[in-house]
Design a protein around this nucleic acid. Structure first.
Length: 413
DNA sequence: ATCTAGCCTGTTGG
DNA sequence: ACCAACAGGCTAG
């Protein structure tokens, strides 16, 4: 059990169409949730650790407090959870709307249900996305962990039990990883990041040039803004106003500002345009027809407008579904790829079956064009797993892929 | 208005 | 195993 004072598990009814925990907590909105067990996730909040599990019908939650609560106090964790996951928004209804307006959304959404926007703390969101510049999700998570461990408040530990399914090579017999006690921390308060040593410390921790951005932004929020400034961007300002305020901070450009607007300030129409969204716009929606070389502010806004015209007021929420579908982490769910998971008592085998696919890309007339043909051949292999008694336990077909790529550059016109 | 180089460094794919 | 190139950009010029 965890050191700390854990409450009993509570639950609230919730369908997978409203929330898919394993997707939402890994798609790069928040960088702090850890897998604390098989299908269990934990994260430090200001005064407690919250742990979550999900069944097809319910979301299960419990809190672990650093010190025992007074006997009469009632646990308000459910309120925090409802707020954090924006549960007053009916996501399934929105999916219906987006799917009827956009065939491409309809096609992708099937494998990515329950992708909703979190309603995070604006300060945490701001710092998290300053870390995200020119960076990958895995490293951002590690950086935010270090930030919390260095400048946050200890909240106790959570017992982590083995999370990843045993890899086929080491799947034999008894190699369970033993449970470990993992410390959790709150996210640092604003004041904690205004110390004169902060930039240097963060550089030593591997934050690179982002160390200065974090320190300077903390100082600006703390010293040059009224108390509670970021929350007023949520309550008193519209999207454009909030965005304009956010890009005043060092290390915050249009993209980071849109992330903060969308994920913490209730601005559902904010569409952060990063390399993924740019890819989606040009590849799937033929934006600009290959004309643009770089993402200027004007083009940045035009991409957002494209999606706002298509999906409406909550375009930022819709964008997140397609963004998530574009992440490599979830590439096993792509439509031309079917995955089967075979489970017996000791082994989990994941098999990817990729269907044959021939893709020809063409760009517009008059320009130099690159024609890329990607041919994926699949080779079948049948594998039988037998138990000690020789009885067949499982039979699977594994298809491995051979990819050949042909590139030709030529001029037309 | 628009473009470019430079920035830090862990992860990832060849 | 190693080594580039990339990664959910921003700033200054």
């Amino acid at each position: 059990m965890s050191k700390g004072h854990a409450t009993a598990w509570g639950q609230l009814p919730l369908s997978l169409n409203q929330l898919c925990l394993a997707t939402v907590l890994r798609c790069g909105q928040s960088f702090r949730w850890k897998a604390s067990g098989p299908d269990e996730w934990s994260c430090g909040f200001p005064d407690r650790i919250i742990s979550l599990r999900q069944s097809p019908t319910h979301l299960h939650y419990r809190a672990t407090f650093p010190s025992p609560p007074p006997p009469s106090s009632k646990d308000d964790t459910i309120e925090i959870v409802k707020d954090y996951f924006n549960l007053s928004v009916d996501l399934a209804a929105l999916y219906e709307k987006w799917a009827s307006a956009d065939p491409n959304f309809k096609k992708k959404a099937g494998e990515f249900r329950g992708v909703r926007m979190l309603r995070q703390d604006p300060w945490e969101c701001l710092i998290g996305f300053i870390c995200s510049s020119n960076n990958n999700i895995s490293r951002i998570g590690q950086m935010v962990d270090k930030l919390c461990a260095t400048y946050g408040t200890p909240l106790g530990t959570i017992t982590h039990t083995s999370t990843n399914p045993l890899s086929p090579s080491s799947a034999s017999a008894e190699n369970k990883t033993p449970p470990t006690e993992v410390p959790y921390y709150s996210f640092p308060k604003i004041e904690a990041l205004t110390g004169s040593d902060v930039e240097e410390t963060l550089r030593k921790l591997g934050f690179g040039y982002r160390a200065k951005y974090i320190y300077k932004t903390a100082c600006m929020v703390q010293n040059d803004r009224p108390k509670g400034f970021l929350k007023t961007l949520r309550d008193d300002k519209d999207y454009k106003e909030a965005h304009a305020e956010l890009i005043q901070f060092t290390g915050v450009g249009p993209k980071v500002a849109d992330c903060v607007c969308l994920m913490s300030l209730d601005k559902m129409g904010a569409v952060p345009v990063d390399t993924h969204v740019w890819q989606i716009a040009t590849r799937d929606y033929k934006f600009g027809k290959g004309k643009h070389r770089s993402l200027t502010p004007a083009i940045y806004e035009a991409v957002g407008d494209l999606f706002r015209d298509l999906w409406g007021d909550a375009a930022g929420w819709a964008h997140s579904v397609l963004f998530t579908a574009d992440l490599r982490t979830f590439s096993d769910r792509l439509e031309n790829t079917k995955t089967t998971t075979t489970v017996n008592s000791k082994t989990k085998v994941k098999i990817e079956v990729k269907e044959e696919e021939v893709e020809v890309k063409e760009e517009e007339e008059g320009e130099e064009e690159e024609v890329k043909e990607e041919v994926i051949k699949t080779v079948e292999k049948r594998v039988r797993k037998r138990g000690a008694n020789g009885k067949v336990k499982a039979e699977v077909t594994i298809k491995t892929e051979e990819v050949t790529e042909r590139r030709t550059r030529r001029r037309r016109g």
